[in-house]
């Protein structure tokens, strides 16, 4: 049994058991996503109905693969941070919560890396 009071033990700790790092990361990725998502919507509109050859040509145009890579990195980091809060708010069974939080992180990394490899394959492959 701890002699520390309940308040003393939780002071400075959110439900994620850390301080402001999560909050800041969410804001920084959000700032990055403002120009990147506007660029993505603009690009998606110009790519409506495109075939693979056209998509490859677009991806090889200056900036496309760089901005797409930055977009998916910021997107999946931001997604992971947001979904983490949703899990922390609604999942109250400790075991389920931890499983979901770990899955959330691993899935986000998997999706980001998978997207970037796909972009490289299209841009530099056949």
């Amino acid at each position: 049994m701890s002699l520390r009071s309940d308040l003393g033990r939780v002071r400075g700790l959110g439900s994620a058991k850390d301080g402001t790092a999560h909050w800041w990361a969410q804001r920084v990725t959000a700032v990055a996503l403002i120009p990147l998502s506007i660029w993505f919507i603009y690009s998606a509109v110009t790519l409506v109905g495109i075939d693979r050859a056209g998509f490859k040509e677009w991806l090889n145009a200056p900036g496309s693969i760089l901005l797409m890579s930055l977009f998916v990195i910021a997107l999946f980091h931001h997604m992971q941070l947001g979904l983490q809060v949703v899990v922390e708010d609604y999942v109250h069974t400790e075991r389920n919560k931890i499983v979901l939080l770990v899955l959330n992180k691993l899935t986000a990394v998997f999706l980001a890396v998978s997207s970037i490899i796909a972009l490289i394959k299209v841009a530099f492959g056949g």
Partner: peptide, 21 residues
């Protein structure tokens, strides 16, 4: 936000479809 996470899955599928052929 949650809906866009599902949309992000579609984006990954779409990019990987392009990589596949």
């Amino acid at each position: 936000g949650v809906g866009l996470a599902v949309g992000a899955l579609m984006l990954v599928y779409w990019l990987n479809a392009a990589a596949y052929g």
